[in-house]
């Protein structure tokens, strides 16, 4: 049984590592089609990553050891976060009481070093991105606790896989709760993964970027790690988003995997749709948008607590 669990966990991790670029490609392709373009093939992120990995690395003259350390730490943090994912409700590689805290905080480590690496260049472009990333990030962990964390407080389970299993078991009494939580969580995912309407991944002006401007001066293997970690992080959040609706019974069976794949496809469609119809918010308005997500969380919880 224990061996089976480890196998399942490794399979999930492998799945995330393998398909993360594909998911990004999928979103981009759908977005292109919705705006009436042909778009790059869905495999494009793989080509890009492969190309980056084999390229010469150029660093700024003012860069220090932080610039070398940060891509590796980012990647390691994302790997640890990915190994807590309940893909298809399978047993994750890392699952223990309180791992929800580790999940939130290990992504904080990645962010810490990413911001430092951006400031390492000493250019005001990167400074701008770092400052914006830092100021939006202060809302990320609170929103995370308002969504996934609120379920932990209500059900009493503190491990991500247990939390999802517990809501799958008693879906009736949590229906409204789950729907609202998943909406808040979607906002969180959009913020964390620097997608529209918080950040425009395809923008071409340094002044308007958030995440992209932080890695402006990175190239070669450094950029490879950043891009790949970004892809994995996106898939992590999307898997957590779909897990709100994943049926309990369908584990790692053929039916289960199909449902899972359809779910992911659906979310990628939604993400592409949102990115097509919205434009990026003004930076000034961003805290309001994020606080809105937090407010939904609070309201939701109040209703849940007093409606018992």
């Amino acid at each position: 049984m224990a061996l089976m669990n480890i196998f399942e966990g490794l399979a999930s991790l492998f799945f995330v590592l393998l398909f993360a670029p594909l998911f990004a490609g999928l979103v981009n392709k759908q977005k292109a089609m919705m705006t009436g373009r042909v778009g790059a093939p869905v495999w494009q992120p793989y080509y890009d990553l492969f190309k980056l990995f084999r390229k010469e690395t150029i660093r700024a003259k003012s860069a220090s050891f932080i610039s070398g350390l940060s891509p590796a730490i980012n990647f390691a943090a994302v790997i640890i976060a990915a190994s807590m994912l309940p893909v298809c409700n399978a047993h994750p590689l890392i699952s223990f009481k309180g791992d929800i805290i580790l999940f939130a905080y290990i992504l904080g480590t990645a962010r810490f070093f990413q911001i430092l690496a951006a400031m390492d260049i000493g250019s005001s472009f990167e400074g701008m991105g770092a400052s914006r990333e830092a100021s939006f990030a202060i809302f990320v962990e609170p929103i995370f606790f308002f969504t996934l964390g609120s379920i932990a407080f209500i059900t009493g389970f503190t491990s991500i896989s247990d939390i999802y299993r517990s809501i799958a078991m008693d879906r009736m009494s949590y229906t409204v709760f789950i729907v609202v939580c998943s909406i808040s969580f979607f906002i969180l995912a959009v913020t964390e993964c620097s997608r529209m309407p918080v950040d425009d991944p395809n923008t071409h002006l340094e002044l308007t970027m958030i995440h992209e401007v932080m890695i402006l001066d990175n190239s070669g293997q450094d950029l490879f790690f950043y891009q790949y970690s970004g892809n994995i992080k996106l898939l992590i959040y999307i898997v957590l988003e779909t897990a709100f609706y994943y049926p309990l019974g369908a584990g790692l069976t053929a039916v289960g995997v199909t449902i899972f794949a359809l779910n992911i496809l659906f979310v990628s469609f939604v993400l592409a749709g949102v990115e097509t119809v919205t434009s990026r918010f003004k930076l000034k308005d961003m805290p309001h948008y994020l606080l809105f997500a937090a407010a939904i969380g609070i309201l939701n919880l109040l209703i849940f607590t007093f409606n018992k």
Partner: peptide, 13 residues
């Protein structure tokens, strides 16, 4: 990899 595919320093963008 840096050793294999090359590495140099340059001015920041």
């Amino acid at each position: 990899m840096r050793k294999k595919f090359g590495f140099r320093e340059s001015d920041a963008w």
